[in-house]
Design a protein around this nucleic acid. Structure first.
Lengths: 132, 132
DNA sequence: GTAATTGCAAATAATTTGCTGGGTG
DNA sequence: CACCCAGCAAATTATTTGCAATTAC
């Protein structure tokens, strides 16, 4: 059989870490965390698995304006909030905007599959610090 | 006087190029274009000026899921469409979603300054090619 | 057993930076 | 004439890749 996917311990642990956090870690952070369970883990393996899992649609790779990617174990399309003060990334539920997709498609003729919505501002923790 | 901004020929040309296109070029493309007018231009200068102009709010740097940034001479916040087939980036007008910002702010307590909305799909040119 | 997958290290891609000299107000 | 800014090349950062050895089914 060709192209039969295997479930290495490395892949399982990386996926498990992402499914159990809402912190949107970087590849480096995933590596540090996974290394606690797999001392010989290499960073290349982390990148290979993150790409593999993202291509399979099991996780999402996020480009949010920084020089590095973050990874989200929630594969459902949803919104994000980026704190401009501390860089933290939060998940955001927002009302479905299908009507916006449809309107843009109708106005432009483009075929639209989905959209990504990212909010920018100041998180609760950083708002508290600002007041001082 | 300290921190007085100057208008080098390089900076003017880079800004002018971006203001006169809707193509959302990469730094490399800006470099190639500007070099036609400035044969001794260096890529470092292009990057320094793109960053300078983006920090001043005269242009926008776009992170749209690729390994490289694109630059937009339209500093007004607006939507983008990314063709998943050819990679082309188009500007998109969409109805104001202030209500969404407000609702998320109210639901979460986050202070929201703005949002970015990116649509993904297939552009007109690529739709035409698909049919064949 | 055989192909997928790993670890390691070297390679690549995109961007940034140090330095020195030239240009601008 | 002070200081910003350019050009050049080397450095840095994030990520990818080649290869031989290992692991999963």
């Amino acid at each position: 059989m060709i192209n039969e996917q295997r479930h290495s311990k490395q892949r399982q642990i990386i996926l498990g870490l992402l499914k159990n956090t809402t912190a949107h870690p970087t590849a480096e952070r995933v590596y540090e965390e996974a290394k606690k369970q797999l001392p010989h883990l290499s960073l290349g393996t982390v990148y290979r698995n993150l790409r593999f899992l993202a291509e399979r649609g099991e996780i999402q790779e996020l480009s949010l304006g920084t020089t590095f990617s973050r990874y989200d174990g929630n594969a459902e399309n949803h919104g994000h909030f980026i704190c401009q003060s501390c860089g933290r990334v939060l998940d955001i539920d927002y009302p479905p905007l299908d009507a916006v997709n449809d309107r843009v498609a109708r106005d432009t003729g483009l075929k639209i599959s989905f959209h990504k919505l990212a909010f920018y501002g100041v998180c609760l923790g950083c708002q508290a610090k600002e007041i001082k």
